[in-house]
Amino acid sequence: MGVAAIKEYAFEPADRLENFHGNQLLYIGWDQHLLFCAPFCLPLPPAMRFGDIIDKVLPGVFGYHPDFAKIDWSKVVWLKSGQPWQADFNKSLAELGLKHKDVLRFRTPGLDGIKGSAS
């Protein structure tokens, strides 16, 4: 049973890919840095190079945090839907198999937030 209803009830999901004007949504969270209260939601073109997200998008998103400038991106541990994931900065979102509404998390070992509080 998909829903309790008095008659057939079937509609398109409100957030399907076609509604985002050529972009797809990518969620991205920085583990143990909860000064940012929640992971972020970003609308991005599927052809965007992953490295461009790191270089051009993330500084505006996470740059406020004093740990951000200290990140060694070659040592960052990535998770996609909670499973280990291999980033490739030279590939696009589409080439990396990132689909609409996928969620990435990254961990920065050694950087554990304001005074080690995971903030």
Binding site: P13, D31, Q32, L34, P39, H100, K101, V103, D112, G113
Partner: peptide, 14 residues
């Protein structure tokens, strides 16, 4: 220290 993430795939969407 860890945000709680849960997800479901339903009819081709996450």
């Amino acid at each position: 220290t860890q945000i709680c993430y849960r997800e479901v795939d339903y009819k081709d969407n996450k």
